[in-house]
Each structure stands twice: as structure tokens, then as C-alpha cells.
Design a protein around this nucleic acid. Sequence first.
RNA 1: GACCCCGUCGUCUAGGCUGGUCUAGGACACCGGGUUUUCAUCCCGGUAACACGGGUUCAAAUCCCGUCGGGGUCGCCA
Length: 464
Amino acid sequence: MSVVTRFAPSPTGPLHIGGARTALFNFLYARGRGGKFLLRIEDTDRERSKLEFEREILDSLAWLGMDWDGEPLKQSLRGEAYAAAAEKLLSTGKAYRDYTPPEEVEALRQKAQEQKLPFRFREEMARKDPPKAGAPFAIRLRFPTEGVVGFDDLILGRIESQAKELDDLVIVRSGGEPVFHLCNVVDDVFQGTTHVIRGSDHQTNTLKHVVLYEALGASAPKFAHIPLIAGPDGKKLSKRDAARSALEYKEQGYLPEALVNFLARLGWSHGDQEIFSMAELIKHFDLGTVGKSMAAFNPDKLLWLNQTYIKNADGKRLAELMREHLRHEPKIAVPADEHLIKVAGIQKERARTIRELSESSWYFFMRPEQYEEKGKKFLTPEALASLGKYAKTLKGVSDFHAKPIEAATQAFLTESNLPLKDLAQPLRVALTGGTVSPGIFEVLEVLGKDEALARIEQAGKILG
RNA sequence: GACCCCGUCGUCUAGGCUGGUCUAGGACACCGGGUUUUCAUCCCGGUAACACGGGUUCAAAUCCCGUCGGGGUCGCCA
């Protein structure tokens, strides 16, 4: 039997970090086994479901490199299937009509809680006859009262509970609307899902779902509950710990493969390997090697991974990403591709995000108008004098590339009996306005002869 | 509170099923050193963990029980 997994978000918000990981595990598991990875939009909550969220979720998955098979199944269009399933359950006696008003159930529950007694709604408590013709009723699935219900979780192992711990599940509300549990199970049967991989917050739901599968006469898929993600402090993950939306990471300058790599390693590992391409993840990922305990979200590691990917990324791609970022900086006239690619090439090993890469490269796009305080210290009268002489050397370099510039500089240094340090740092300040930059010869090459000379001259005028 | 799940460095984890090879390995972060024109990269080194208590055994991170801690769920939400 070939593997079918699915990711079933409800479009009531953007794709958050936990959802992205759940999607990823489903994706990797299916792709690694030549199976199908399906999507299902659980939009039965008409109030909270928004089309824009649905689109954002799909965009996020696409950005992260998870392609899905076929068209997403939308639950809002599947009303008939749910009604038919409920009808079947009723006619086979697996479910019953309950005329108990919701408020009444709630009151009973309240009372039980006050008395610290467990509350389970079972058939004998239900009002099974209509108080009047046409009265609203909910449909409840009859649960076993003794024995155990359970399933073999692919990650957690055997999970079971006493049947008496569960109550008769409402599968259709008194308004006639099916609830999540029914839709979820009916659709997994319909889509042929073989493996349900979801967060462990669904663990108790799954106990209910196995009863529902059986009642429907369907065989249950295999289940795998992945541990939830904790915040950096080990406590519950809150909005301030991680971005609410996967796309927010894109805006912050993260590369999708870094986020994917990070998410995969959160709760899963393959020996000592840290860096995985999507292809490697697909090849090695398995549910048996997913950990059972919660994993804390560690922003530092994400940053490190992102830096690693940026460092190894191709300059052309980085240039494109920088261009996108720089679009939000109206003051900066973004240079031509060729120039931007060079900048990316020499800057990429000192940036952890595309944002950092863009921001720390500003002096390649505009001439510094002032100098950092700690940079000014280097521009002593002697240093400025040396720079003035050095400018003549630079002017004479016909092939203005790092290597020839370096050679000419060495000659100049020998002649003037100066250590490189005494020239490089003042030069860096004059060129970039600060004390931090890539190698000075690369900077000279990228700026170009004319601009470099102009900046040296400007420094002499301002500080001389 | 009840039910279910989990518990190795600060963090992500290897090892646990098939006890000895674990004086517990790797990675991030942190600290120190080296390379270097600055920063970064890179290289080398260091600090740091089997939650606790019992048991089983010649031997336990590994198996069992308990305690404590963390999480999830207890909706006519999804």
C-alpha cells in the first residue's frame, strides 16, 4: 500500500512554526516513500476561516519548498459527505439523536467540576425523544463503556485509555453542522490517508477517532503524534518566541532551506548530521527516529543555520534576495545586478540573515557622509597624508581588481616603509565610514576606482 | 482535579528496544587560543548533562516501581 499523508490546516490564521513542522514531516514521510502528500483545508468554521489565510498558508508551503499533490480538499464543500456519514451512523445504530439542550449539558458539566467529580456524557443522560416536533438535536456517537480504546502510535508507541474515560462524542451540532472530528475522519477515509502525522495535542482526539473509524466501518490509518514545540525557555511557545507566520521569516531574511533544516532537526535527528538538503531530508527522514519529548525553539541555532546557508549560497541568488529587501529602503538606489552580485559575494560570510546582509552593505550603495566615532581615530593627519599619496598609486592601477590592487599596494607600502595595518584601517574608514568591512582590496574593486578615489578625497577634505 | 504523554550538557540531540564497548559523543550558544588589514569565515581547545529515590543485576543513562517536574486533553472550537 502506497503512503498517503496530508496536512490539514484550518485557515483561521497564518501558517505558524508548529504547523510548518507538521506539514514538513508529512511531506518528508510521503516523498521519501514515493507516496502522496495531500492538502486539506479545514474551513468548517465559517466565522473564523478566511480566504487570505488559506492563500498565505499555501504560499508559505510553496516558499518552504513543499509541493503537494492535486488540489487541496476544502471541507466547506463537503457538507453532503458529512451528512451522509452521520446518517449512516444513525441508521446503523452507532449514533443517536440527543435533544438535550447544549446549555443543559454545560450546566451538568459545571456542576460536576464544582464537586470535583469526573463528568462523562453518556447515552443514559441524553434526552432521546423530541420535546416537541422539529426540536433541534445533536448527533452523538455511542462510545464503548468498558474495555480500552487505543492505537499504536508510530512515535509514542501504544497509547490507550479506559473506554469509560471518554464521553459520547457529538458529531453533528444541533444546528446540523458537523464537527471537526466527523469531518476529519470522513475526509481521511475519502482521501485515502494512510498516515496521520499531527501534533500531540491531537493525541486524545485520536482515541475518539479510532472509535469513529470503526463505527464507520473503515480501517483507521496509522497515527504519529509529534511532540509540540516549546519556547526558548522550555515553556509553552508564545507569540513573542517565534514568528506567528512562516512568511515572517522570509521578511526577516531567512532562507527557506535554513528554516526547513531547522524545523526538521527539531525533534528529529540522523546521527550527528546537522546540515540537510531537502533531498537528504527526504531520503533519511523517518517517524521512528522522531523524539518523544518536546523540543525548545532555539533562535540562535536557526540563525547559525541561516548563516551557514547564506555563506554557501550563490551570489546571484543572494543579490536577488537583497534587492527584495532593499526595496523597502527608499533612500538607497539599488545598483545594477552585476554590482549587487559582487557585493553579495564579498559580504555573504558576515551576515546571518539577508536583512543583515543588506543593511551592512549600505556603503556600497551610497557614499558615507560622516564617519563613525571609533573610525575617526584612525584618520590622523599622518594617516590622511599617507592616503593622499596612496591615492596616486591607486590611480595608476589600470586593471582595477583585488589582486592587482593588492600588488600595487604592497609596492607602495614597501616604498613608504609602512605596515599594511597603518594604511588599511584608515582606508577602510574613508571608504566605508566605519571600521568593519570585507577585505580592503575587495572593497576597492567593488567600489571602483573613481568612487574609491572620490571617497579618499572626501575624507581628506572633511577631516584634513 | 481526572486522564494521557514526556524527562541525557543552558538548548537541539546520539546512546536506551538488543544492560558492560559511555571516565556519556556531536551541534548551537558561551569562554580561551590560532590564522588575519577590521569584522566575519576558518582551525584548535575548554566549561557543561543521564531529574530524584528505590529495586532487578556481577554490572543500569539503558530494565521495573515510586516521587518530582514539564506538556497535552478534558467544548454542540479546530
